[in-house]
Amino acid sequence: MSILKDIFTAIRGGASEAGEAIVDANAIRILEQEVRDAETAIAKAKQSLTRLKGSEIKLKREINSLNRDYDDYEAKAIEALNAGQESLAEEVAERLEEIAAERDDKVAEHSSLESEVNAINKLVRSREKIIQKNKRDLEKVKTIKEVQKATTSISDNVAATSSSQHRVSKALDRVKAKQQNWRDNMEAGEWMDKQEQGDDLDARLKQGGIGGSAGSNKSSILEKLKAKQKAG
């Protein structure tokens, strides 16, 4: 049975209500044992693989050497035939037959070794699959347990204050107010920056004699007053 189904059953049965372990401890032990078993099997398989690989290399070397011998004797048989030494060539042919037989045996051994290696690799892969699957399942159990822990530790705090009405709404309003306040401050900061930059510009304009000075304003007002006095 999948762990998720176990979890489903446990929740349905209200297992987590009392803070009990959500999944039967026995189920977890089985998963963990399976992981250990699979790890042991893999370790053994790897040892066999190392041994088999050694045999395979040795066989390959022997086959190569037999092939070389064969080629060598074949050339010699042709040489004997060319020299008209028929009986000698016949003896060489017998040796060639022996070498070929031995080589074929080794080749057959080599291919059976290869299929053995493949079978072991397959076994390792299937064991690794078990390990991964079980680890994912264990991870689910662990996740449930940790989420429960992480929630419970806050729920205690929440419980202490949850008697108050609109707890969440009030908290939400406070957060939103703080965020608004923060945004307002940002805006104020930006406004201030602009003002400072503006003041700076005015000062520079004044320095450049652009926009007039307080003194010239005063004199122009005086001029106007004098004009009014004359008119009056």
């Binding site: 680890k135 264990l138 991870e139 662990k142 996740t143 940790e146 989420v147 822990k149 992480a150 929630t151 530790s153 806050i154």
Partner: peptide, 12 residues
């Protein structure tokens, strides 16, 4: 609230 498992950091 943060908690750890073997493979992940859980944020609740």
């Amino acid at each position: 609230h943060l908690a750890l498992t073997e493979t992940q950091l859980l944020a609740v």
